[in-house]
Amino acid sequence: MRNPYDVLGVPRTADAAAIKGAFRKLAKKLHPDANKDDPKSAKRFAEVNTAYEILGDEKKRKAFDRGEIDAEGKPRFHGFEGFGGHPGGFPGGGAGAGPGGAHFESFSFGPEGFRRAGGAGAGGPRGFGGFEDLLKDVFGGAAAGRRGGFAGGSHFEPEDLHPQPPGRDVEVAVTISLAEAAQGGTRRVHLPTGKEVEVKIPPGLADGQQIRLKGQGLPGPGAVGDALITVSIAPHPVFERDGANLRLDLPVTLYEAVLGGKVRVPTLDGAVELAIPPGTSSGRTFRLKGKGLPAKGGPGDLLASVRIVLPPEGDPELDDLMRHWRDARPYDPRRDLT
């Protein structure tokens, strides 16, 4: 996975608005619905979504910048800090300890398990005397307890190093598009067991919901675990989820807002026509019934909020009209704010 800043094409100093703008531009360009004949675009779209999941979240972005998570959002392993507070060392000075009576002990492994070749003070607080406790920490107390511990001549059984729990579950994270969440579909998922399975995505799946695949986990002595597929829904370049409802900003021209007219509004099922009444102000919200996401109580709605957009280039005639209007028909839309 590439650096998320490189994926979105923004510098590390970019603010949240610049990151969101870059994501929306790329997501709209690479969305699978607009690139059905280009299989590479789906991979790039997923990469862009993953990058935005990190950089669009303030906490995750800071964690990535500090090197705490990688480009996929997974925690990085920074290594051990050493034993006894000395990086790379052992308790009380251990291997390579300096002056002050520190000593080395050697260990061998044979039919009788681990054996200590005693140096002076073997088992003492300095040197390598805490080896039994170290093994207990690493492998768990059960590994030592089954044989009465490591002290007193008891031995360490190699088969206890990797105990097999009965039927362990495995977890996999999958990101789907908003359209897949609404309409359902199938996804091929690679499991930690090495298997590749086809997962059915039911319509109306919520963000963070899990799908359980029985018997697709790790085997144990008497059972096989399950695979738990945690589903995340990727941000959409146009729609924002609000429970079962969807929201979008609907750009309209100045003359459409003043005079009214019919405009095309995108939905997950295709575009529909919406009648804008004359004198519509920016911010007015229209509800399109049943055009949201599937839900138990019935589908949600699409909430389209009007945003008046002026011409991209200046217009002298419009400027003259506005000056005349300002002087002849002044009004104060902010009178209720004072």
Rank of each mutant, 00 (worst) to 15 (best):
A304S: 12
G283Y: 01
T193P: 04
H162G: 13
L161K: 04
G283D: 08
R187C: 00
R168W: 05
A71L: 01
P299E: 07
A27P: 00
G167A: 10
G84Q: 09
K60S: 15
E68Q: 10
E313Q: 10
L259V: 13
P87I: 00
G300P: 04
I233A: 09
E58G: 11
I276C: 02
K214N: 13
A14D: 07
R287H: 05
V138R: 01
L293K: 00
L302E: 02
F128I: 05
D319Q: 14
A27Q: 05
G94E: 08
G290D: 11
V138N: 02
D315F: 08
G148K: 02
A120I: 11
R168E: 14
A244K: 15
P251E: 07
R147F: 03
L310K: 02
G124F: 12
V306Y: 00
E171K: 11
G93I: 09
G92E: 01
P192K: 00
S232A: 10
T285L: 06
E81K: 08
P235W: 05
K136H: 10
P91H: 15
P158I: 14
G56I: 02
E53D: 11
E47D: 12
L259D: 13
D37H: 11
I276E: 01
H78P: 00
P235N: 11
G260H: 05
V263F: 13
Q183V: 01
G130D: 11
P277L: 11
G145E: 08
F45H: 13
G101T: 14
L134N: 04
L250H: 03
F80Q: 07
R329S: 14
R168L: 12
D169F: 09
K136I: 10
G153M: 08
G100Y: 05
G141L: 05
T50R: 07
H103W: 07
A51G: 01
G222P: 02
A117G: 11
A257D: 06
L254G: 10
H103L: 15
R335V: 05
L191Y: 11
L134V: 14
D15A: 05
D169R: 01
T230G: 05
D65S: 11
K29F: 10
L213P: 02
P39Q: 07
G84H: 09
G290F: 09
I201Q: 06
P299R: 12
G85M: 00
D137Q: 14
L293A: 02
F83N: 03
G184S: 09
A142K: 15
P166N: 15
K28S: 15
T175H: 00
R146P: 10
F131K: 00
T253A: 07
G270P: 09
F131T: 12
I233S: 08
S232K: 15
H155M: 11
R241V: 09
E47Q: 15
I69Y: 11
K200D: 14
G129K: 01
N35R: 12
T285C: 09
G88D: 08
D37K: 13
